[in-house]
Design a protein around this nucleic acid. Sequence first.
DNA 1: GCGTGTGAAACAATTCACAGCG
DNA 2: CGCTGTGAATTGTTTCACACGC
Lengths: 205, 205
Amino acid sequence: MPRENVPDVVIQRLPLYLRSLVHIAERGQKIVSSTELGTWAGVSAAQIRKDLSYFGEFGKQGLGYDVDFLIEQLRRILKSDQTWHMLIVGAGALGHALANYRAFENWGFYLVAVFDNDPQKIGNPIGHLIIQPMEELAETIRERHIEIGILAIPPQSAQAVAEQLVAYGIRSLLNYAPINLALPPGIHVAHIDPVVSLQSMAYYL
Amino acid sequence: MPRENVPDVVIQRLPLYLRSLVHIAERGQKIVSSTELGTWAGVSAAQIRKDLSYFGEFGKQGLGYDVDFLIEQLRRILKSDQTWHMLIVGAGALGHALANYRAFENWGFYLVAVFDNDPQKIGNPIGHLIIQPMEELAETIRERHIEIGILAIPPQSAQAVAEQLVAYGIRSLLNYAPINLALPPGIHVAHIDPVVSLQSMAYYL
DNA sequence: GCGTGTGAAACAATTCACAGCG
DNA sequence: CGCTGTGAATTGTTTCACACGC
């Protein structure tokens, strides 16, 4: 679909544009210029136009972009117009917060299973699901066609669990454990670590 | 302290080096080469040497880096060798998970107050703290010398609350609300949004 | 006239490759 | 000899500026 190879930085900005566009649409606005969208998203107008140009021509010269149309296109490009199945490993405080987070489903990301290795927790409800034992991992991934794994476990076990998930067919991981995962090429890992974010900010304090 | 102006990407990588070094130190290793550290942190050896060279000469030629010494230096550079006071606004599931997250204090980040605007929640315990009403925001920030604010609230109120925090002297924000904040220059904002991370990953699926 | 789309120009980041030193 | 530190070369990203079309 992309006309040529798209830099990763561009892919990381598209969700920000999409979020800003939804905000603009909710205000009832139908048309937006790259300048205005750039102000909302915190990037330059030229950058928005260049980024979008990797994927096609979505604007109207002299006018701007149709907000609803551009939302639709970005959803398509980011594959947020289809359904993805996710699992969480780790039913601690973070696992619970994620299991109750309602914003995933708007974007096609459905949580369909939660796992933990603590016998005390297995069988307990979490969100609208039941905590399952790790033994059911392989079977559930296969049967529910799960593509995305979320790690909400301590760093000590993160590498081993990540390897299990990859072995069972997961290709995308959202890692909340504060450790750098070493995984084979082709596996995509996104990292969320508040300490890393805080440390980068503290530099400027 | 930095010899010249340091690119922001470099600052964002230093916490990853620090995290890897701690891991290496816990295994009892005393010396590490840029090649080995790079493998752990997922970057090239040359990049590590270049990044560190912005701040000084920390290695020994022909040998490598003293692990403990480099940890000490990175803690100093990232200001993680001193104490910072943080507050959370929003005592929902995420606020609770963050309030119970034990990893902050290892790095000098101390949570000293949690706020919410829900009268039902005010006065309830959260972690080792008590949920306070928003009216006490200004006073608490001043009295407890709070430098960092964490937003764990719905996106509708995030901009207004962020502006309040800035007005009361907060210069660094960790924003969990899925909205781009527009704030005056000089204020540092780090964003954590799992949907943004998932959307970037889904592109490659 | 206004705002997009896009080559060209400017700028930034990364990698290379090697001198220098323990 | 091995590994750091660093200019130089390369690669990647952003900004500029303008032709084009509504």
